[in-house]
Amino acid sequence: MSHPRMAGGHSSGNSSAVRALALEYKSLQEEPVEGFRVRLLSDENLFDWEVAIYGPPDTLYQAGYFKAHMRFPPDYPYSPPSLRFQTKVWHPNVYENGDLCISILHPPIDDPQSGELPCERWNPTQNVRTILLSVVSLLNEPNTSSPANVDASVMYRKWKESKGKDKEYENIIKKQVLLSKVDAEKDGVVVPLTLEDYVVKAKPPENNLELTDFYDDDYDMDNDEDDLEDDSSNEQYDDDSGNGDES
């Protein structure tokens, strides 16, 4: 199997990112985040993931199956990944092209105009698990103070202020949920409809990859070189010893 740095065009200098992603992917296989399915877009590249989000029960998104691509930078976890929905999602914090706008995915810079505190932005202690949990929270409670989709934000406010009497926002979401079921059927996925089913841990993804597939070569390289140097030194020592005996 090719390594992600070869398949994805990443240099061996990013071996720390490969190690971090491999450990996170393994952790998410063993203990999946409730309401999500995570897998690699390609078995040979750890930097591009497919995330499937199940609409939380008792919300407008119930029964929805929303797919997104998560792309990690070469210096992960020091810089945040990006998340772009492939399924149409009408939401105040999702741009028309599908890009998710959420504080946790913004670089940790001081930008007073954004209205975000540096502590709300990305930092290396965050991980995929915290991102996914933040996405669920955002579906339930959109941030309308700095919306990515102004029209969706206006509709959401009308819906909330009218206590559901203004159906424009709700009707759009329901249509998108209905359309998303087609993808779920294609992927052979049964979307949980009750809270009980939603919180049950899902089975790990089929591509159960070993960590050694990704970072053994990267992280054993120095050790291998040391072993070679030791072997070379021993051979030189043996030769010297042999020459001494002959003289």
Results as ranks from 00 to 15, higher is better:
residue 175 K to E: 11
residue 86 Q to C: 10
residue 100 L to Q: 02
residue 127 N to H: 10
residue 52 A to R: 00
residue 142 P to M: 14
residue 104 I to F: 05
residue 30 E to V: 14
residue 24 E to F: 05
residue 60 L to Q: 01
residue 107 P to I: 08
residue 116 E to M: 11
residue 146 S to Y: 08
residue 111 D to T: 14
residue 50 E to N: 06
residue 58 D to Y: 04
residue 240 D to G: 12
residue 178 L to A: 14
residue 137 S to H: 11
residue 115 G to D: 13
residue 232 S to Y: 09
residue 198 Y to G: 02
residue 113 Q to P: 08
residue 216 D to M: 09
residue 208 N to W: 10
residue 129 R to D: 02
residue 17 A to L: 08
residue 167 K to L: 15
residue 219 Y to N: 10
residue 200 V to P: 03
residue 93 N to L: 01
residue 115 G to Y: 03
residue 22 A to R: 05
residue 171 N to M: 02
residue 102 I to W: 01
residue 193 L to F: 00
residue 98 G to N: 06
residue 167 K to Q: 11
residue 21 L to Y: 01
residue 9 G to I: 10
residue 224 D to L: 11
residue 229 E to R: 12
residue 211 L to T: 10
residue 203 K to R: 11
residue 151 D to Q: 15
residue 108 P to N: 15
residue 184 A to H: 00
residue 104 I to Y: 03
residue 80 P to T: 01
residue 157 R to D: 10
residue 156 Y to N: 05
residue 56 P to G: 04
residue 4 P to F: 10
residue 23 L to D: 11
residue 125 T to R: 12
residue 29 Q to T: 03
residue 88 K to T: 07
residue 227 D to Q: 14
residue 161 E to I: 06
residue 46 L to F: 02
residue 129 R to A: 13
residue 221 M to D: 14
residue 158 K to C: 08
residue 163 K to V: 03
residue 193 L to Q: 02
residue 76 Y to H: 06
residue 246 E to Q: 09
residue 114 S to T: 15
residue 124 P to W: 04
residue 196 E to I: 00
residue 22 A to N: 07
residue 126 Q to S: 09
residue 70 M to G: 01
residue 207 N to F: 07
residue 126 Q to H: 13
residue 13 G to Y: 14
residue 73 P to Y: 07
residue 128 V to M: 09
residue 69 H to F: 09
residue 210 E to P: 02
residue 234 N to R: 12
residue 163 K to S: 15
residue 203 K to Q: 09
residue 173 I to G: 03
residue 136 V to P: 01
residue 210 E to A: 13
residue 183 D to M: 07
residue 101 C to D: 05
residue 126 Q to V: 06
residue 91 H to F: 03
residue 69 H to G: 05
residue 156 Y to H: 13
residue 52 A to H: 09
residue 33 V to K: 05
residue 52 A to P: 05
residue 130 T to C: 10
residue 163 K to F: 09
residue 172 I to Y: 03
residue 117 L to P: 00
residue 94 V to K: 03
residue 132 L to I: 00
residue 153 S to P: 05
residue 222 D to V: 13
residue 186 K to M: 09
residue 98 G to L: 09
residue 2 S to K: 15
residue 234 N to A: 12
residue 59 T to G: 04
residue 21 L to I: 07
residue 167 K to N: 10
residue 119 C to V: 15
residue 42 S to L: 06
residue 57 P to Q: 00
residue 177 V to C: 04
residue 69 H to V: 04
residue 34 E to H: 12
residue 45 N to Y: 04
residue 77 P to E: 00
residue 63 A to T: 00
residue 154 V to M: 11
residue 47 F to L: 07
residue 106 H to N: 09
residue 40 L to F: 02
residue 5 R to A: 10
residue 243 N to E: 13
residue 238 D to Q: 14
residue 172 I to T: 15
residue 236 Q to D: 13
residue 108 P to V: 00
residue 188 G to R: 06
residue 52 A to Y: 04
residue 199 V to P: 03
residue 133 L to N: 15
residue 172 I to P: 01
residue 172 I to H: 07
residue 116 E to S: 12
residue 195 L to A: 05
residue 178 L to H: 10
residue 158 K to A: 11
residue 186 K to Q: 08
residue 17 A to P: 09
residue 113 Q to F: 08
residue 97 N to T: 10
residue 209 L to Q: 10
residue 194 T to L: 00
residue 81 P to M: 04
